[in-house]
Amino acid sequence: MEHLDDTPLRKLIRERIAARGKIPFAEFMVACLYEPGLGYYTSPGRKVGAEGDFYTSINVHQAFGRVIAREICQMWETLGCPGSFEIVEAGAGHGQLAKDILDTIRAVNGELYAVLTCRLIETEPSLREVQRQLLAEHAGKLAWSSPDELAAGTLRFTGCLYSNELLDSFPTHLVEMTGAGLREVYVTVAGDDFAEELDHPSTPELAEYLARLGITLNEGQRAEINLNAVRWLAAVAGSLERGFVLTIDYGYLAPELYGPMRQNGTLLCYYRHTIEENPYLRVGQQDMTTHVDFSTLIEQGEAAGLKKIWYGEQYRFLVAAGIMEELMALEAVATREEERLKLRLTIKKLLLPEGGMGDTFKVLVQGKGVENPHLLCMRDWSRLF
């Protein structure tokens, strides 16, 4: 009888471990998510939405993209309306968010649309054609780059790089505090299954990461350390000549992320809209995520030349940037009360905590070469009504 998860990727990882010995969990996660042709994000198939494994704000309503578009228009004006402006979406998926943003900019700011280029960056190769078809009416505005090009620092642009639920999918190291000190989680093989083994950290960067934040884990406490997010942000800072970085994801500042209440860290898997805590099942077939350390993004961004402009909960960003105006505009063209009610309930999902996305998701806006920015999200939203 075949093993329940006897996939080609599972076999490949087992062979690597047999040949080289145990591997850091981060390397296991790289294979599960990004192994060419076999990983969760590098194999064909719908991952997001009703037919996939999870929802994002993009799937809730186009108003999410329309509000981001409003802020991008404000960013362009803040930079002095340059004659060339690039928006770069890292982790562009099927292209729906880019479509909502481009549709809105074309409708509300033709001057910006005329000088705009939209660059899409996505790991899964087959999605480029999907994006091309979805964005066909904006064909003259499109460009593509690979994640490797961004990581190598070969891109140069003025404008805004934005991402939505990208950094949470970056492979992370797992560590655990023991009586003998900090140890890293390694993946090995025991019979037909994967197993874990604690050993000395594979790099001194792990202990240095926690020390920089002033974090001391309790004995027995596990945590994730996302070195890839730090490297990614440095590459973004190097590519951005002048403009903004807009990051939307779920996570916390370090004191909360690494607090004693998170004894087991934040690593979770998603498969067909159900949560799975075991990362060693359905290898390559389930999403794996960890919460983002926004303290490190802010601090390391500053070191790389990205100044923090705004940080807060998604609902605060959306309200300040104009989602209520979007709601009123959409309600004005709705023909039935049932349609208006459905619209309100949908928007609430983006804003409300506890069951919605309002406070689970955070927004970080960083700038480079920007003096005294005046963005919509910086407005005192309590005074907007």
Rank of each mutant, 00 (worst) to 15 (best):
I225G: 09
I58Y: 00
L213N: 03
V319W: 03
V189S: 05
G355E: 08
L38W: 05
I58F: 00
T335R: 12
G284Q: 06
L233H: 01
D199P: 03
E224Q: 15
I215T: 13
A320L: 04
M1T: 10
D193Q: 10
L352M: 15
I23P: 00
T7Q: 05
A50V: 15
F25E: 05
P44Y: 10
W144Q: 06
V187T: 15
A136M: 07
Q263T: 09
P353E: 11
L306C: 07
A50C: 01
P8I: 13
L120Q: 10
A235Q: 06
A63G: 12
N109I: 00
A321M: 01
M324L: 15
A211Q: 11
L102Y: 02
P373W: 08
D380C: 03
R119L: 11
R262Y: 11
G369I: 11
L166F: 15
F54M: 15
M29W: 04
H200A: 15
L240S: 03
P260A: 15
K308V: 10
C377W: 01
A190V: 02
Y271N: 08
E326T: 08
G284K: 05
T158M: 08
K99W: 03
P204C: 06
V88L: 14
E313T: 02
L318Y: 01
G93L: 13
E86W: 00
G153N: 12
D193E: 11
A136H: 14
L352F: 13
V48F: 12
I215F: 07
T78E: 13
P279D: 09
Q133P: 00
L267P: 01
V130T: 15
M378G: 15
G243M: 06
A321R: 02
V185F: 04
C160G: 07
E224V: 05
T216Y: 00
E122S: 10
E299C: 04
L12G: 00
Q314N: 12
V292M: 10
Q263E: 12
M1H: 07
G191Y: 05
A63M: 12
C377L: 03
G49D: 09
A63F: 02
F361A: 08
L135N: 05
G91Y: 01
I72Y: 01
E197K: 14
Q133T: 12
N228G: 07
V115A: 11
L155V: 02
F25K: 10
Q286C: 13
L345M: 10
A63T: 13
A92G: 08
R70M: 08
E276W: 01
L206S: 14
Y41V: 07
L102H: 04
P255N: 08
N59I: 00
M288Y: 02
R282N: 12
E129G: 05
T117G: 04
K11I: 14
P279F: 10
M177V: 05
F85V: 06
T104C: 14
V319C: 10
E331H: 04
D53G: 06
G312R: 09
T158E: 13
T178C: 07
V67Q: 02
M1G: 15
F294V: 07
H173V: 10
L9F: 04
P353D: 11
I298M: 12
R128S: 09
G49Q: 09
V292K: 09
